[in-house]
Amino acid sequence: MDLAQLTGDLEDLRSEAMAQAAAAPDSAALEALEIELLGKRGRLTAVLRGIGALPAEDRPRVGAVANTVREGIEAAIRHRGKSLRGGELDARLARERVDVTTPGRPIRRGSLHPSLEAMADIAAIFAQFGFVVVESPEIEDDRTNFQMLNIPPDHPARDLWDTLYVDLPGHLLRTHTSPGQIRVMQSMAPPIRVLLPGRCFRYEAVDASHGFEFFQVEGLMVDEGTTLADLKGLLDQFAHAMFGAGKRTRFRPGYYPFTEPSVAFDVECLVCGGPGCAACGRTGWLTILGAGMVHPVVLQYGGLDPERYQGFAFGMGPERISMLKHGITDLRLFMENDLRFLGQFR
């Protein structure tokens, strides 16, 4: 074995390897080829085994040639590998194409009930004005539901609340959230700003605008200088927040035994905006809620001195608010729980 023969073998290996690399059909074949040529027990190593037979002065020269050959083969394999991988990726991408126009895998979507959502919306608006939420019982005693609200037994105003009584003497299903006013005043000291949401009951035949079970949100604010003008200002804010900033509002006289003066609060018709239509009974106005200054007798039952403290109360139906807001015309939908109806809310 002489120098010339060894370098010749190396050159042969190189040219053969270059051809083989360029012809490798895929990445796996190329990898096998790399091991066959350059591996620990590969052909290059086999050729270099002859180096031991050479004179010492020739060995560096063979080493240099061997390095060049190794680099050349490596470059060829790398080059071939790169082009192979590019092609293979293209093939894979082509193979993996899907019909992107098909619908996705459905995820079940839930929904909150519109009555309670309206209640939450109302609470959120009044929270900005410092009103906190308090709850009171649904099974009430006659005294708190009526008498302490200045509605004595046999008072004609009782006609305003057709009542469901329970088999516990002196008790009834609260006809409104107003008895909560008494409970709040008896347990909290002014300044009072509370919201009393909850379920109410009436002896009322079911139709498109009446139900025997419904929700109400009561508001109560009592302090030393709370005025009817404050009530008006606050309700204006509420109407604007709930129905839109530009909406006109109207105060007109109302009647509740537990407020004096009493008012009804209207907002311009959300359907026609004023000229009058079927939705607003041709008046141009929609009634949103009833309110008034807390009656001195009610303050007294709440344990407050009506000479020192005064305030207002209001009560509204979240279903009514929801109906106006969403254009719903039948109250019965709220308790029917048809999922096609409920699914329209978030």
């Binding site: 300044p191 700003r193 003008a229 200002g233 204006d236 804010q237």
Partner: peptide, 10 residues
């Protein structure tokens, strides 16, 4: 008039 309450906050 329509005013906002200026009384103290609870």
């Amino acid at each position: 008039p329509s005013t906002l309450p200026s009384t103290s906050m609870p």
